[in-house]
Design a protein around this nucleic acid. Structure first.
Lengths: 335, 335
DNA sequence: TTGTAAGCGTTATCAC
DNA sequence: GTGATAACGCTTACAA
């Protein structure tokens, strides 16, 4: 510790400049001096001081990631994708977990915009568009996963939620279902809203009238799914299938059915979204919609890195393909 | 962007020093000037430059966390505990996911020891003791979760794996089992080894001879558990229960049993370790040993932060209590 | 109570 | 090819 470039320079009998050149692989330095310097660096276990370097170069080679909940496997996969790409390009990653609290998200955003990161990625962000734009306006490149905002400094990647939802609901319809519940997430979540749209489109395409009483909110979490189920039954709703806007809520439905003695899929079919890690381990295994999470993470990181390095013709928005995974929970043909 | 302390100073008609004092809540500055400066800071949306501050103060208020796999819910919970404590103390957290690759772990360790973090936490580290000591020797405070090393700069937190394993195996014995398999993790993992010791102790305490042929390695992962099961059956081993050194391997056992038509728990009882998120959703639900993961994370972060702030009488090693969770997979009394 | 100026450890621009 | 030195933006003695 505490050994710096000047120490190396002295011992190696060269100037600081030369040591710096060696450190940065500047080909101009003579192989012989280079080796000598490297030897001293090795001996002294010298490591350049990050802050000094950052200050001088006005960059940190760090990407800040703000994520709603790293425990949700969907988010974890995206973060992994980001990390893989980042590390392969010599970038570090700072992760902030907001625990689904918008106030905390706001605080982290403030914390990270002190130039301690070169750019930002928001995964499943809850922040109002205005605040995100604010950051972009201040000069930060921002990456968005799962939503999109139009600004020259903002990139985004998401799937076509309308299309995916439509496909899922049509799968249920193909199994003979006509009374299908839609379990929605947060009211202000764009993806939940899009999935609702897909649901409605699927019904329409098959001449099934949309019945608002079959839409319930489950807040994207397990207890919310359970409660929604309870409300549905409480008001005497009749239905044979559920399209849940994510897998978490489906867990609550499973629990309810377990307690109420409702058999899945013979009495109630269900399909979720996200392909959460647990879904394939459930009994019956849960049908779901998979998104290429890793690719999405690595794609957004790649765009940001490229754009920071002067590439300017990148598309602002990327829409990737999701994929329906049919498992046991929706495999029961009523026809 | 690009607005700095001198700009604020000029507009507020004070010196840089005064602005700095305001920023750092130095009570010596007169309330009136303070307010004036704050106003300008607000107007200009000035944010101090992290690297400059870090360089000057020789610290970054950042904790580096190196974790074997953030997707494993055990690790994610620990990281959450670290983050909560860290953020409450104004520290940031950098997370590096090594994907269980020792080479990558080594690389991240190198990457983080450029003073871009103030201290380091290794979660489920695979690195040889020597390399960890190396870092501690260079002056870094190191926190270890799940293992421990003796050095004045190293703190650690883990559970008493021997005791917990013994308790789990005794639970199986109490259900009437005598032919109990032990599924081990990596050969060099201290916790796996300790769990083996607890297993042996439990057998001994109940007069059951230890039979090496009932110990199989499953490498701490799902496919390893499946393969181990296959090997056991292949060599004609007879057993009625399994103690798996983690829940992941138990998943592989479930899969094998499912294919082979072996009923859990009536034909084969099983108990794991970690209380992975999926374990309670399995059918039958998996008995396991829970560790206070959040607390462990926050405890280790707390120790490091305290010790960096000059507290010196902290215990180097903390052992926390784990807890047996009996679920369906081990609830079948053979007696 | 406020201002002046040195210094944190690099890198980059000049000379040589 | 190499060396001297200014500059990055902040904090903190020390002066005033």
């Amino acid at each position: 510790m505490d050994i710096k470039i000047v120490d190396v320079a002295k011992i190696a009998n060269v100037s600081q400049a030369t040591v710096s050149r060696v450190l940065n692989n500047n080909p101009i330095v003579k192989p012989k001096t280079r080796d000598a310097v490297l030897k001293v660096i090795e001996d002294l276990k010298y490591v350049p001081h990050a802050a000094a370097k950052n200050l001088r170069q006005q960059k940190t080679m760090t990407i800040g990631v703000i994520v709603s909940d790293i425990k949700v496997s969907y988010n974890a996969d995206i973060v992994k994708g980001i990390q893989n790409k980042a590390y392969s390009q010599k970038y570090k990653v700072v992760i902030c977990d907001t625990q689904n609290d918008m106030e905390i998200e706001r605080e982290y955003l403030r914390l990270l915009t002190d130039r301690s990161v070169d750019c930002l990625i928001l995964v499943a962000s809850l922040l109002p568009e205005k605040e995100v734009l604010n950051v972009a306006e201040r000069g930060y490149m921002v990456g968005l996963v799962g939503r999109s905002i139009d600004h020259e400094n903002v990139f985004s990647v998401h799937t076509d939620n309308v299309k995916a939802a439509k496909e899922a609901v049509e799968h249920l319809i193909a199994q003979g279902h006509r009374d299908i519940v839609f379990l929605s997430g947060y009211a202000n979540a764009k993806d939940s809203y899009d999935r609702l749209e897909g649901y409605i489109k699927a019904l329409g395409a098959h001449g099934i009238p949309f019945r608002p009483e079959l839409v319930e909110n489950g807040n994207f979490n397990e207890t919310g799914g359970y409660a929604a189920m309870k409300r549905l039954k409480g008001k005497g709703a009749v239905f044979t299938a559920i399209f849940s806007a994510n897998d978490e809520m489906a867990l609550g439905v499973y629990e309810y059915c377990n307690e109420a003695g409702i058999s899945i899929p013979s009495e109630l079919a269900i399909i979720g979204v996200d392909n959460d890690r647990v879904s394939k381990y459930l009994t019956p295994s849960l049908s779901t919609i998979n998104q290429p999470k890793n690719d999405m993470g690595s794609l957004i990181a790649d765009k940001l890195i490229r754009s920071m390095n002067g590439v300017f013709d990148l598309p602002r928005v990327s829409i990737v393909e999701s994929q329906l995974i049919v498992r046991q929970s929706s495999e029961f043909n009523r026809a």
